[in-house]
């Protein structure tokens, strides 16, 4: 296990260097000059040139990149071109909001997804199974910005059950739950559907497996067959899907945060790309990529615990 972690962390470092290079280069290749954005439409050429010089954008590209890389290794993510705020500070301010949203959404997704998935598998080919399959497929087919807008319209404005936007409290407080309810449903629906489908098919496969038949034949009670033999084995692929979806959710927050006025890292990314605020884009992309890799590492470790047959040596 220790070997696995060391190897993965090493891979993560390489991966992050690769990502930082790609992001750095693509931001610099992309048309649009951060200095003219700061200057705005009213700026003269001299104004813009002075800002460029001030930001160090006149240095050679590779010098800029290596300066940046050196900064990362000393824990310095640089300063925002626009607000002059430290990138690390800006990210730390926003990250709790994104994490709150992502966790709330994955919880919504797991509860809905695993429950319906297992019940449909146990009641294979009944009306419940059919209905939940249709709903699950519908769930992945809804554009989530559309769902968000419609939820706001119904539950925020007409019924006034939930606030229409903003996130100021963590998810375990009552106020936080209220604030998160609509965004978490918006973001979690797609994942819930995927998890439901995966749980259903994994469960079906396990139910038909030989050892389950054997257990049944031996006269083990139905409930304990399901609990002891099926669930445990069916959970393995489901956990992969949950892990993958968590990464997917982190990306999905980009749109959901905009719709629900949540001040998170996703929105920071959109704003920074639009403003060509290179250090801010870099910092937030690196954070999301790191999280994605870490979540997958955790998934692998959880695997090993659930299914002792899997080894990574």
């Amino acid at each position: 296990m220790a070997g696995l972690i060391v190897r993965r962390v090493f891979q993560l470092v390489l991966l992050l260097i690769g990502i930082s290079f790609i992001v750095f280069m693509s931001m610099h290749i992309a048309p649009g000059d951060p200095a003219s954005i700061i200057g705005g439409p009213t700026a003269t050429q001299e104004d813009v040139e002075a800002i460029r010089e001030n930001l160090g954008l006149n240095e050679p590209l590779l010098t800029q990149y290596f300066d940046y890389l050196r900064g990362i290794f000393t824990g310095d993510l640089g300063f925002s071109y626009q607000t002059k705020q430290a990138v690390s500070e800006a990210i730390i301010n926003r990250f709790p909001n994104t994490l709150n949203l992502a966790i709330a959404s994955i919880m919504v997704a797991i509860v809905i997804g695993v429950t319906t998935g297992i019940i449909s598998a146990l009641k294979h080919n009944t009306w419940f199974d059919g209905l939940s399959t249709v709903i699950a497929l519908g769930g992945i087919s809804i554009p989530n910005f559309w769902l968000g807008a419609i939820l706001i319209l119904i539950f925020g404005v007409n019924l006034q059950w939930f606030p229409v936007g903003g996130l100021t409290e963590p998810f375990w407080t009552i106020e936080g739950m209220k604030q998160l309810a609509l965004p978490a449903i918006t973001l979690g629906t797609g994942s819930a559907a995927m998890i439901a489908r995966m749980s259903r098919s994994a469960m079906l496969e396990v139910i038909r497996a030989d050892y389950v038949r054997t257990a049944r034949a031996k006269g083990v009670r139905e409930k304990s067959v399901i609990m002891m033999h099926c669930l445990r084995n069916a959970m393995i692929p489901v956990i992969t899907v949950i892990g993958l979806n968590f990464g997917f959710l982190l990306g999905g927050t980009i749109i959901t945060e905009s719709v629900f006025a949540i001040n998170g890292v996703g929105r920071l990314m959109i704003e920074s790309i639009a403003a060509r605020d290179f250090p801010m884009v870099q910092g937030s992309v690196l954070l999301v990529a790191t999280l994605f890799v870490l979540v997958n590492l955790i998934v692998d470790i959880v695997y090993a615990f659930i299914d002792p047959r899997i080894s990574y040596e």
């Binding site: 807008a149 706001i152 404005v157 006034q160 229409v164 936007g165 903003g166 629900f260």
Partner: peptide, 18 residues
């Protein structure tokens, strides 16, 4: 001074007194 990126959300917040 608060930031609400979607104008329609901002209007809903105005409507609900936020």
């Amino acid at each position: 001074f608060t930031v609400v990126p979607e104008v329609s959300t901002a209007i809903s917040m105005l409507q609900t007194g936020k």
